[in-house]
Design a protein around this nucleic acid. Structure first.
Lengths: 200, 200
DNA sequence: GCAATATTTGACCAACTGGTCAAAGCCACG
DNA sequence: CGTGGCTTTGACCAGTTGGTCAAATATTGC
């Protein structure tokens, strides 16, 4: 992976990825067109294809980047920290990612809903390994009586679902909520729910 | 809406809707083709178009049906029942719908993620009204001290997210969980979490 | 300022898409 | 058993899509 980047190359590649995130996260892979991405990036279609060999290449580049950022926060879960605060920090970070990177969340959601055809190996590989590892930490905490005996895998799923919901179903949330910004109250609610669930 | 149905018509319409649910829930509207649906329904494309005037007609028929089933369970929330048991029953019913009708859930998720272009009126109309109505019941319960003072809208969102996650992210859940069937443990975890959250 | 290189573009293509249509086949009923 | 309506189909069409290519244009290093 050469880090080559003749100024103009870097600029256009970045513009393409940014536009691709916009388009793919809204319409999914099959529902998006190269023309849409090119237009949004301010390039002609052949020009876009000068930087990426195919539509698929843009999409997988985005997914790869995304998966990295995705795994990151969970890695920070620290065995030596206070169990409940560690989990709270993780959950809050995830919620903030839903607020600040909703398109990334939707891109991921789209891919998973469609059966994760392009990332099933990462899911069953890196992601599963990481989760397994962190589940062991949780179980150790529980053995020490520092955490309620909740099912560790489902605990993680519930943190994922509670936080990602605000990105993936943003339209619905905003349509139903009277307030403008869902996130301040969402964070309070998340904290309440998790503390109630995790307290020994 | 004529209930006309010459046996063979009913059979084929049903087959088309079933096939459409399969295809649309996996690929979204723009990512699906009439040919895919027709093939899955065991019909030729022109034959399918004899029963439905367009691709869009199949999709909206599915969405309409779905939205009805979707609103149904929340309607059952009964002011006169026991607050916590009413909410538990609602949550469990939603979870069972994720288990038994995952494609419907994914179809809905797909539509919402893409900005709900075809159902935004239902979301801001019927759905919002219904939620507002039930939120008032929850607030009445809280005023009577029968329920913890959690944010009622976010409480509903959290029930939705916790349950739909098992349908929409089914692939991920199954890839990560050691057990085969996520649902028995998911239900236990959901119950724990909600009871801990809602107890006064 | 010029040659080599990097970038951009218009024209084009084959495959696919949603949808049409007239003709053919099938079925129920008298 | 035949006829009128229901059902199915092959051929077709126009628009879109992902992708190619050679030629034109800009940039850069010398």
């Amino acid at each position: 992976m050469a880090k080559s980047g003749t100024r103009i190359q870097k600029k256009n590649q970045a513009a393409i990825l940014k536009a691709g995130l916009d388009v793919f996260s809204q319409f999914g892979f099959r529902g998006s067109t190269i023309d849409q991405v090119a237009a949004k990036a301010g390039l002609s279609k052949p020009n876009l294809l000068y930087y990426f060999p195919s539509k698929e290449a843009i999409y997988t580049a985005l997914l790869a980047q995304l998966l990295e950022d995705w795994l990151e926060p969970l890695k920070a879960l620290d065995q030596d920290g206070d169990p409940i605060e560690e989990l709270m920090a993780y959950a809050k970070l995830k919620l903030r990612m839903s607020r600040d990177y909703p398109r990334e969340s939707r891109l991921f959601a789209n891919e998973i809903i469609q059966g994760a055809p392009r990332i099933s190996d990462v899911i069953t590989g890196d992601l599963k390994s990481l989760v397994d590892e962190k589940v062991q930490i949780i179980q150790a905490w529980q053995a020490d009586g520092k955490l309620a005996d909740v099912h560790p895998y489902h605990l993680i799923f519930s943190i994922w679902s509670l936080t990602q919901h605000y990105a993936d179903f943003d339209v619905q949330v905003r349509a139903i909520l009277p307030e403008n910004d869902p996130f301040p109250e969402a964070e309070k609610h998340l904290e309440r729910m998790l503390r109630a669930t995790l307290a020994v």
